[in-house]
Write a protein that binds this DNA or RNA. Structure first.
Lengths: 383, 383
DNA sequence: CCAATAAGTTTGATGCCTAAACTTATAGCG
DNA sequence: CGCTATAAGTTTAGGCATCAAACTTATTGG
C-alpha cells in the first residue's frame, strides 16, 4: 500500500491525493482502513486561509505499532523503542566489551535487553510490530545470518534464528542488518535531508551506507557498502585484513589516535574527547592526523561518488564529531577527483544523530516495513 | 505490462503462467493482445513427452518493431538494426576521427547514417520502434544532454534534440546514454549470463557499467559507472584530468601500449594486433605492461565489488581481447582485497561481443523499452 | 444570508486479474 | 479403436482496487 504517503505528516486527505496522483475517493478509503488498524489518527482541523472547508490533518498514530531497535556494538549494547512517527519512546544503553565474550553470552544479554524492552512496551500499552538488529559485520540479507564481523571476532552466527529462539518473539518480524546501513537509513528518515547520498560511519571499522532514491542499496547478498578495505595507497601500511593501504588502516579511528599521539587503553569516549580537546587547542599533531585521514577518506569517497553518481556525502559516527576538521581537505579531494563536480559539486554534511544512528535506523526499519506494507501487520493485529 | 515474460522465448502460455505466477487466463489474454500488436508470434507445437495436449510455442516476432542503435565512437561511427529477439538484422560501420571534427559535422554524419538505416528498415518492411545512441561521455539521463565527452572534446551537446531536429524521427523515442553502460546492457541481454555484474570497457577511456538485478545502475543523474578516474596510486603519474594516479592513466590502452613499446601513430586496430602478437610470443615488456594494468584494474575493481557486492566482473572492449593475460593478476587482487571473497569468490569473465557491444546495447535498449511497456508502441502503431 | 470555494463521501463504472469450469489435443492402455 | 488420464488453452463470472462524477459538509467573504 502507498502508506508511505502518510509520512507527509499533518496533511489532509485532499493534499495527499494531490501529491500522490490518487483520487480523493481512493485516499479516503485507504485512510479509513489505516485508521481502523490504528496506524493513522486524525488531528485538529488544519489552518487554511481563504474560503472553503478545512481539511482534517492526518498523523501517523503515536500509539500505533512500535519498532524495536537493537544494536550489538563492539563495546556496547543498545536498544530503543520508536513509534510510527520515528519518535524515540524509550532507550537503553549498556557498555560491554563484546569482543571478549562468546557470541552465545552476548546473545543471551541481548535477549535480556529485548525482554526488558518488550516488557516496557507492554507497560506502555503498545504493540511491537517489528524489530531490527544492527551488527558490525556482513549480514546475508536473504537468511539474516551474520557471515563475519571482524571487529567482533564473530563468524557465521545466525543472529535472527538465535534471537527468535531465545526471546519469545512468536510472530514479530526480525530484520538483521549492518550497522552502517542502518545508520544511513536513520539519517535518511531524520529530517528532510537528501534522498541520495553515501553515509560513512567511522566507528571501530569504517562502513558506508549507500542510499539511492530514498532506498538502501544493499547489493546482491546484502554485503554492499564495504568501504573499509578499499585501497587508497598501494605502498601504504599493511592492514589486519592482509592487504596494503586499506582506508580503514589509514583513516580509521585508531590511526587518527595513533598519529595524534592520544592512543592508549583508555575508554573510547575518553579518547575522542581528548582528541577533540586537542583539536580545539590547535594541537599540531592532532590537526595533521585528522587532515590526513580526511584526505584518504576524500580519495575513497571520490571513487564512490564517481561510480555511483551521488550528490551528497554524509559524515556519521566519529567522523561527524570531527567534521569541522575534516571538511576542507575532504571537499578539496572531492572537487579535484569527482568528474561531475565541475557543474554540480558534491555536498558534504555531518550527521546529527551521533552514535545513536544505527539503533534508530534498526528500529526505524521495523516501522517502515509496516508502513510500506501494512497488510501483514493488520492481519496479525486481528489475530 | 509483464511482457518481459516473453523473453523466455519458445515457451508455451502455460509455462509462462507457471513461471510468473499469473494464471493461464491472464497470460492468454495478454498474449492475445501482444500477438495483435505484432510483438509475439506463435510457433510450432512444442515437443513434450508424456500425455496431454502440447503447448504452442511463443516467440517474439522477428518482424515486429526493430531497434536502431547508433554509436558515436571516438574514431568511428556505427549503427545497427536489431529485432525484438535481439538478432542483428543489419549493421554499418565507418571509421572517422570524430576528435578533429566539430560536433555539428559529426552529428550531420550521424544523421546520414540514421537515414540510411531507416531507409533499410523501410525496405525490409519493418517499423523502427525506438532508437538508442551510445556516446563516450557523461549523459544526463533526464534531458539526454551530453555534458562532457573528454576523449571526444565535446561539452554540452544536446544529442537527442539535434538528432530529432536533423533526421525526421517524428515519434520514434530516442535514448541517449554512455557507451560503457550500453555495452554492459548488451552483455546482460546476450545469452544467459549473470544478472549482477560490473562490466569494464577498456576503449580509449575506461568506463564501467553496473548491472544490478538485471537492471542498469545509472545513479541520480545518469553519470554512474565512472571508473576511469578512480585513484589507484596517490604517488602515480599525473592524469589529463589534473589528478594523480587515475586508473585510466595507469591501466588504459595508451599506457599499456606505451609500456609495451608499441605506441606510435598507427591505427588503433594495428596497435592492438601488434600487442596481441607480441603477447602470443611472450614478449617480456608486453606481458609486464599487461600484467601491470591488470593489477591496477584489480585494485579498482575490488573497491567496486566491495562497495556494491557484485559476484561477477566482465571484461569488455580491449580488455576482453587481452583477457588471457589479465586474468591471473586480476583474480589475485580480487581474491586478496574483496572482503566477501573467502566464501564466495568473485568470478571474472570476458565479453564475447567485442567492440560491437555498445551499439548492440543501444539498439537493445530501444526494443527492451518496447517490451517493458508496450502500450506507447501499440497506440503509436495504430495511428 | 447567499455565492463561492474546498474537503471529504457516496455511487456506479472500469479494468485487471483470478478461480473454476469447460473445450481441445495428445499419450497410453486394454 | 475407443476409453481414460493428463495437460494446454479458453470462457465465464466475480473480486478488488481505483476512478470519475455527483453529492454533502464546512468555511469565507461580500
Amino acid at each position: 500500500m502507498l502508506n508511505a504517503i502518510a509520512d507527509l505528516s499533518g496533511h489532509s486527505r485532499a493534499e495527499i491525493a494531490a501529491r500522490t496522483g490518487l483520487t480523493k475517493a481512493t485516499v479516503s478509503s485507504l485512510v479509513d482502513r489505516m485508521i481502523g488498524a490504528n496506524l493513522v489518527v486524525e488531528g485538529a482541523a488544519a489552518v487554511r486561509t481563504g474560503p472553503g472547508r478545512r481539511g482534517t490533518a492526518l498523523f501517523l498514530a503515536p500509539d500505533g505499532p512500535h519498532g524495536l531497535g537493537v544494536e550489538i556494538g563492539v563495546d556496547y549494547l543498545a536498544t530503543c523503542l520508536i513509534d510510527l512517527t520515528g519518535e524515540v519512546r524509550a532507550r537503553w544503553i549498556q557498555s560491554a566489551d563484546n569482543r571478549v565474550l562468546s557470541p552465545a553470552r552476548v546473545l543471551s544479554r541481548v535477549t535480556k535487553a529485548v525482554r526488558t524492552a518488550l516488557a516496557e512496551a507492554d507497560r506502555m500499552g503498545v504493540r511491537v510490530g517489528g524489530m531490527g538488529v544492527a551488527v558490525p559485520g556482513l549480514v546475508e540479507s536473504a537468511t539474516g545470518i551474520l557471515r563475519v564481523a571482524p571487529n567482533l571476532g564473530w563468524r557465521e552466527v545466525d543472529v535472527r534464528g538465535e534471537l527468535r529462539r531465545r526471546a519469545d518473539l512468536d510472530d514479530i518480524p526480525v530484520l538483521v542488518g549492518n550497522e552502517a546501513n542502518f545508520a544511513a537509513l536513520a539519517e535518511l528518515w531524520q529530517g528532510t535531508g537528501p534522498r541520495d547520498f553515501v553515509h560513512v560511519s567511522g566507528e571501530i571499522g569504517i562502513g558506508a551506507g549507500i542510499v539511492v532514491d530514498g532506498g538502501l542499496f544493499e547489493g546482491v547478498s546484502g554485503f554492499g557498502g564495504e568501504i573499509g578495505h578499499v585501497m587508497v595507497d598501494p605502498r601504504g601500511p599493511e592492514c589486519a585484513c592482509g592487504a596494503r593501504g586499506c582506508l580503514e588502516r589509514l583513516a580509521g579511528q585508531e590511526e587518527i589516535y595513533r598519529q595524534a599521539g592520544v592512543l592508549d587503553d583508555r575508554a573510547p569516549e575518553e579518547l575522542i574527547t581528548d582528541l577533540l580537546d586537542r583539536l580545539a587547542h590547535r594541537d599540531r599533531r592532532s590537526v595533521a592526523a585528522t587532515r590526513s585521514a580526511a584526505r584518504w577518506l576524500g580519495i575513497a569517497l571520490s571513487g564512490v561518488v564517481n561510480l555511483l553518481d551521488l550528490p551528497t556525502v554524509v559524515l556519521g559516527g566519529t567522523y561527524a564529531r570531527l567534521a569541522p576538521w575534516l571538511w576542507e581537505p575532504l571537499r578539496d579531494e572531492l572537487a579535484q577527483r569527482v568528474v561531475s563536480s565541475t557543474w554540480s559539486p558534491v555536498e558534504v554534511t555531518a550527521s546529527t544523530l551521533g552514535s545513536e544512528a544505527a539503533v534508530r535506523g534498526a528500529a526505524g526499519s521495523a516501522v517502515r516495513a509496516i508502513l510500506a506494507d501494512p497488510d501483514p501487520y493488520v492481519t496479525a493485529a486481528l489475530a
